[in-house]
């Protein structure tokens, strides 16, 4: 018996990267702009979806993929707005991956869709390593979670193009310092767009909705130019 040592340089996540790239091709062919929405549990992802859907209704075709440990409660909330939603139950798994999105896409009719939003499982660590094929990653941070979060989850802040600071209606009742959040987020990712919002009162939604509309129409133009 011989002992050998072989050099292999391989990304452990390459299988998921390949699936994410396939998804991306599918989205681009269909001219759909896709967001991967992440946060800790309860920061307000589904509330954000509901308000965003209300704000864009009639102007943009929207579909939603809901990732959850269990239950289909979030998808039902979205469907009650008259929007196509498919629920993925990860059965305890802490993140969505490219394969789950591929399976979910089979049960969506993408023909009238301009914008697909994927609500990831509530978790600020695990989803960060798994690309789904999205065009942008967006995170929600609620002021109730505290202003030290950027320090504890650097990768999540690093990779998200957008930070939505939610529940600003609760600011008077917390010791959360918005300036600290802004400064820490700037150090981690100075190009990150920050929107301060309240899903409860609707405050701050206008700039967020314009950002999405710009992205969706920009993506459509880009894809049309390519085809």
């Amino acid at each position: 018996m011989a002992q050998i040592k072989v050099p292999v340089v391989r990304n452990i996540l390459q299988a998921n990267e390949r699936l994410a790239a396939e998804n991306r091709r599918k989205f681009d062919d269909a001219g759909i702009y896709v967001l991967n929405l992440m946060s800790s549990p309860g920061a307000g992802k589904t509330s954000l979806l509901e308000k965003t859907i209300e704000g864009l209704a009639g102007r943009i075709g929207i579909a939603v993929i809901e990732g959850d440990l269990q239950s289909s409660y979030d998808a039902e909330r979205i469907q009650s707005k008259g929007i196509q939603a498919v629920q993925i139950n990860t059965d305890g798994g802490c993140h969505l991956d490219g394969n789950m999105i591929q399976i979910a896409l089979d049960s969506l009719d993408l023909s009238e869709v301009d914008l697909l939003i994927i609500e990831n499982v509530g978790n600020l660590v695990c989803p960060a390593e798994f690309n789904l094929g999205e065009h942008d990653k967006v995170m929600v941070l609620s002021v109730a979670e505290g202003d030290d979060k950027p320090l504890k989850y650097p990768l999540m802040f690093q990779i998200c193009s957008v930070l939505l600071v939610n529940k600003i209606d609760l600011l008077p009742y917390t010791d959360c310092d918005m300036n600290k959040i802004r400064e820490r987020a700037r150090q981690l990712n100075a190009n990150q767009k920050i929107f301060e919002i309240s899903c409860r009162t609707g405050e701050g939604f206008a700039p967020w909705l314009s950002w999405i509309e710009e992205k969706v129409s920009g993506h459509k133009k880009l894809q049309r130019a390519k085809n």
Binding site: Q87, N89, S107
Partner: peptide
């Protein structure tokens, strides 16, 4: 409603992506 379930083997459940 369309629903997708992942991970049939319950002993493979874990709350860690590791």
């Amino acid at each position: 409603m369309p629903q997708v379930c992942i991970g049939e083997k319950s002993d493979e459940r874990a709350a860690v992506h590791e």
